[in-house]
Design a protein around this nucleic acid. Structure first.
Lengths: 131, 131
DNA sequence: CTAACTGTTATACTATTAATATAACAGTTA
DNA sequence: TAACTGTTATATTAATAGTATAACAGTTAG
């Protein structure tokens, strides 16, 4: 679990945690069934509070990314991550619209924007053994 | 100025304002040189506080979207909006990465994601005379 | 000149959220 | 038994969003 938390960022710590865990799942550094540290271990390793880790875990649990068993601990959902549905698409659109609007204002074309996304997508899902 | 503010949204009001103004510039509903309402007028029309409008204006000003003359009032930058630069690309990438990661986790392919973006881009920049 | 506007600044208050600090409970496991 | 697990409760601090007034200085229309 190579997680990097920036305490100076204006992005909340629990969001940073959620995002980096999702990125590792996307890269398949974390696979269905893989275990995650306990809230206390993780908090101690990252130098943050256990409640902050717990908040990230609770939200990842509610969105179906992880399961939390009293016995087995915290685990990446063995059934896999819930697929895209209409609700998620609407949430995604709502997040993307402002980014697209600003990019268009600044002169980005449709092709340039989608190329930019394609490039990021490749980097993120490129199964990570490069160094 | 057809702006719609959702007071119940968890998206801050000044962000909603910024985004909707940027969207109207992207659609060319607002063109360089066009005037915007005074902070007091706008606030009264929207039923919000003048400082909330001012906060949105100040940020749009700093990013080069609008100019504020003591005389002419508030105006969409007549020189046009500043182009994409390295700094903006980095900010954009930082915003897109979590969205792409979550979409990839949920099984979206690179093609599906870029198609989704392309579609949104078209809708946003489609010069708006449809009804 | 006056009155009504303009952006700007300052101060104060409330509500919400993020993050931390302890503490405790109940269940699991070596 | 001892050390762990997730979970819950309570309290505090800090930052942010939003509102409410008030005032200042410059502009403009009547």
């Amino acid at each position: 679990m190579l997680i990097n938390i920036d305490l100076q960022s204006n992005e909340p710590i629990y969001e940073q945690l959620k995002n980096q865990i999702m990125i590792q799942i996307a890269r398949k550094d974390l696979k269905p069934g893989d275990g995650l540290p306990s809230v206390r271990r993780f908090a101690a390793d990252l130098g943050i509070n256990l409640h902050t880790v717990n908040k990230a875990y609770q939200q990842l649990k509610q969105e179906g990314f992880i399961l939390i068993h009293r016995q087995k601990g915290v685990v990446v959902n063995p059934e896999g991550i819930p697929s895209v549905d209409g609700e998620y698409e609407e949430k995604l659109a709502q997040s993307l619209r402002p980014l697209i609007a600003e990019s268009a204002c600044r002169g980005m074309t449709e092709g340039e924007f989608t190329s930019f996304c394609r490039q990021l997508f490749k980097q993120l899902t490129d199964e990570g053994d490069e160094y």
